[in-house]
């Protein structure tokens, strides 16, 4: 089973990387970009029997840092 985990900074947590990319987009002449936030995609290939709880635990224990990040799990 293919699973895609999207990890991103919680709202309100400053994203200096996103801000720099935002400036770069403006520098390239793209108008109307309101905000840029950068996250991380983790693609997993797991046994069919892997439970939602297991996936959740993987995210909480390692893939995301719950102090600064949220995650969402998408089964493909």
């Amino acid at each position: 089973m293919k699973v895609r985990v999207l990890v991103r900074l919680k709202p309100g947590v400053l994203d200096p990387q996103g801000r720099a990319v935002h400036h770069a987009l403006e520098g390239l002449g793209f108008a109307g970009v309101e905000d840029v936030r950068i996250g991380r995609v983790v693609e997993l290939d797991v046994a069919e029997s892997t439970s939602n709880e297991d996936l959740d635990t993987m995210c909480r224990q390692l893939l995301a840092n719950m102090v600064i990040e949220d995650y969402s799990i998408e089964k493909l």
Binding site: V13, L14, P16, Q17, N65, V67, I68
Partner: peptide, 17 residues
């Protein structure tokens, strides 16, 4: 230490990058 939870908070990329 923050990643283990022994200390609170997190250390992010420097604001200046």
């Amino acid at each position: 230490l923050t990643e283990t939870g022994l200390l609170p908070g997190a250390l992010m990329r420097n604001a200046s990058q």
